[in-house]
């Protein structure tokens, strides 16, 4: 992929009516969590997963979050991404205070701000690669032609322009995850959250996916927050944080 294609992507992949929101300076925080607690209940027994957690993620950074299984990594990522709400504490992401937002406001905010990459790819099996990538754009007022253009660009960025009309089952695991990444960036989100994106991949495919994420960070200036327990994956990130016993070490 050429430098030109990347530039084109940043130009075209903006939501309608919204100019591309530059993410150039690395000094301001794009994620600010303060005194976050999260308690689940199993029956009447409380499970305290996060206990007074503070976090600052600078705009444009690529961060990896590690920690033992069950330590609350996914819970933390879900709170940042506006999928879940903390039991207490304040969440500020991309200039928005998530606390007072209603569920539907939060859904809308997610569709414009966050790109999701999951461990198990989570493509819709009955839709082609291109249709999977187009899915988030159905929530915008973009025309069919504009949507097609955005999809083509995103597919080009992940180097799968020749797999547009394949169904997920016709793709390898690595290709599926790259389609998922195309789906995550097609809306030009400010932040990409990835929960164990290489967990289900072989080494070679995992490396391809990580290289792609690195380039999304460097060339498209996306802030990336990635949960992983793969040391090779964490190595690619600029910052590695460790979660243990409900707080960041």
């Amino acid at each position: 992929m050429s430098e030109n294609q990347m530039t084109e992507a940043t130009k075209t992949a903006g939501a309608p009516g919204e100019p591309y929101r530059g993410t150039t300076t690395g000094t301001e925080s794009i994620v600010t969590l303060s005194k976050i607690t999260k308690t689940f209940f199993r029956g009447s027994e409380p499970i305290r997963v996060l206990e007074g957690l503070d976090l600052d993620v600078p705009n444009g950074s690529f961060e990896a979050l590690m920690g033992p299984s069950g330590s609350g990594k996914s819970t933390l990522l879900n709170i940042i991404a506006g999928l879940d709400r903390p039991t207490s504490g304040a969440v500020r992401v991309a200039g928005a205070d998530l606390g007072p937002m209603s569920d539907s406001e939060l859904a809308r905010w997610r569709s414009q701000t966050i790109g999701f990459v999951f461990q198990s790819f989570n493509l819709i099996p009955v839709l082609t690669a291109a249709q999977n990538v187009e899915l988030p754009l159905l929530l915008t007022s973009l025309s069919r032609a504009d949507r097609a253009r955005h999809v083509a660009t995103a597919m080009r960025i992940v180097s799968l322009e020749d797999r547009m009309h394949h169904y997920p089952r016709q793709l390898s695991g690595g290709q599926e995850q790259r389609v998922a990444i195309a789906r995550a960036i097609v809306n030009d989100p400010k932040i990409i959250v990835a929960d164990e994106p290489t967990g289900d991949l072989d080494r070679k495919s995992a490396d391809d996916v990580l290289t792609l994420m690195e380039r999304l960070n460097k060339e498209l200036k996306k802030t990336i927050f990635m949960v992983t327990h793969d040391p090779a994956a964490a190595e690619r990130a600029g910052v590695v944080r460790k979660l243990d016993k409900g707080a960041l070490q």
């Binding site: 991404a81 999928l83 569920d103 539907s104 859904a107 809308r108 997610r110 569709s111 414009q112 999701f116 999951f118 989570n122 819709i124 899915l135 988030p136 929530l139 789906r183």
Partner: peptide
């Protein structure tokens, strides 16, 4: 269920 969860995460309303 999981698939609907993904769609909700992407921003599809209930």
């Amino acid at each position: 269920t999981h698939e609907y969860g993904v769609m909700r995460a992407i921003g599809f309303p209930p």
